[in-house]
């Protein structure tokens, strides 16, 4: 038996495992997709916006839909590890905790991104969207915002896994922390869709938020995992 020599090997193992489980069950993607679809349809139905209004609000709705949908999946991300004491086994392995965390974050990031990609055509259809600004910048804003959501969400899901009412607790602690990233994501995508202002500052701020919170999450994940 040869031990993996690189840190990235651990990361790859965790990531491949999560992707394989999702490939076989498709639980997370299906539930997220349907949930996000419901939010998009409900908002469109409830407000029935005109074309100019929908440019103003579409960024916010997309962001909130992603937020609500990913909470449903993130709650399951660690709960799956509780069965057969897998999480306890993870605690005892010599592999760095950060690679376990990062593997899960990347896996969830991919799931949420797939949902967004599948949702995009429907979104354009229901809200009659056509970007007046530089539309390609959305390909930068959405991944940055999704990363901010998933990195914090995965962390707080791990934090709330051993509490009572954990399903309820995750949104309660995630949403307040996520507010600045949500603001930046909404402002940036609204600026791109309406073409009225420059999204530059907001993209930079989103990137800064990602760097700061990814760093804190990686630093503190070990503390969370071994909390007793």
């Amino acid at each position: 038996m040869k031990r993996p020599s690189l840190k990235s090997t651990y990361l790859w193992t965790h990531l491949a495992k999560d992707l394989r489980i999702e490939w076989r069950s498709k639980d997370a993607i299906n539930s997220m997709l349907f949930f996000a679809l419901l939010v998009v349809v409900l908002f469109s139905l409830a407000f029935d916006p005109t074309i100019s209004v929908s440019r103003q609000i579409a960024g916010g709705i997309l962001c909130v839909a992603t937020l609500f949908a990913s909470v449903t999946a993130l709650n399951q991300a660690w709960a799956r590890e509780l069965r057969h004491q897998v999480l306890d086994a993870q605690r005892m392995t010599p592999a760095p905790a950060a690679s376990l965390f990062l593997g899960k974050v990347i896996a969830n990031f991919l799931f949420v991104s797939v949902v967004q990609l599948l949702l995009a055509p429907l979104f354009i259809m229901f809200y009659n969207l056509r970007a007046l600004g530089q539309g390609w910048l959305l390909a930068l804003v959405l991944p940055l915002g999704t990363w901010a959501l998933v990195v914090n969400g995965t962390f707080f899901a791990a934090l709330s896994i051993r509490t009572r009412n954990r399903e309820l607790l995750l949104p309660l602690i995630l949403f307040p922390i996520f507010i600045p990233a949500m603001l930046a994501m909404v402002q940036a995508s609204t600026a791109i869709l309406t073409g009225e202002s420059d999204p530059d500052l907001w993209i930079k701020m989103l990137a800064g938020y990602d760097v700061i919170f990814t760093t804190i999450c990686l630093l503190l994940f070990e503390t969370i995992l071994h909390a007793e």
Partner: peptide
């Protein structure tokens, strides 16, 4: 939310 967490855990 901090106080809620303290109550739930």
């Amino acid at each position: 939310s901090y106080l809620l967490l303290r109550r739930f855990a």
